Computed example of a mutant assay.
Amino acid sequence: MEVIATDKGASSLTGQCTIKILVEDMNDNHPEISIKSFQSPVTENIELDTVIAVVSVSDKDSGDNGIVDLHIPDNMPFKLRESSDNYYELVVSEPLDREKVPEYDITFTVTDRGSPP
């Protein structure tokens, strides 16, 4: 980028310089999620702590930008359990009742630990 400065004198003078801006890669990869297995349908008499899905998360960045966390909403009868590095199990944590709630829409949120995340 070239910067030119001009004064407003009777005999106008001009100075110029060149500025080079180098943009470094900080956090260009977004976290990814993949459902590895899923049990469907899920019956209302399913036992608590039953695994109904296995989810994998990853991020190709390095450092904190490559470390990811997976979350689901708190108001669900399910919980996430980390089964191994970057693999999570979605398990039933409360009894299900089809007459009260016939289906669930679960949003998985993957966030890296970068700044900004």
Rank of each mutant, 00 (worst) to 15 (best):
L22A: 00
E2M: 06
S37D: 14
G66M: 07
L90E: 05
L13K: 11
P116S: 11
I52K: 04
N65A: 10
S34E: 15
S12V: 10
A10C: 05
E32A: 07
K8E: 06
R81A: 05
N86T: 11
F38V: 07
S11G: 05
D105V: 09
F38M: 13
V92F: 07
N75P: 03
S12H: 09
V42W: 13
L96Y: 02
R81P: 01
F78Q: 06
K60W: 04
V23F: 13
D112I: 08
V57K: 08
N29H: 11
E82Y: 02
S84H: 09
V101W: 12
P117R: 10
L70T: 00
P95H: 07
I35V: 15
E89L: 13
L96T: 02
N65I: 00
D28V: 10
L13S: 07
P31E: 06
P116N: 11
V68L: 06
H71A: 05
M1I: 04
G9R: 14
V55Q: 02
N65D: 13
V57N: 03
P31M: 08
V91H: 04
P73V: 00
P95S: 09
F38T: 06
V51L: 15
P117G: 10
S83F: 15
T109W: 07
V54E: 15
Y104L: 01
P102Q: 09
M26N: 06
M76K: 08
I19E: 09
D59A: 05
D28Q: 11
I4S: 00
P31Y: 02
V110L: 04
E99R: 10
Q39T: 14
A5H: 08
T107G: 00
I67Q: 11
Y88S: 03
R98F: 05
L80P: 07
K20A: 00
E94Y: 03
T107N: 11
E24N: 10
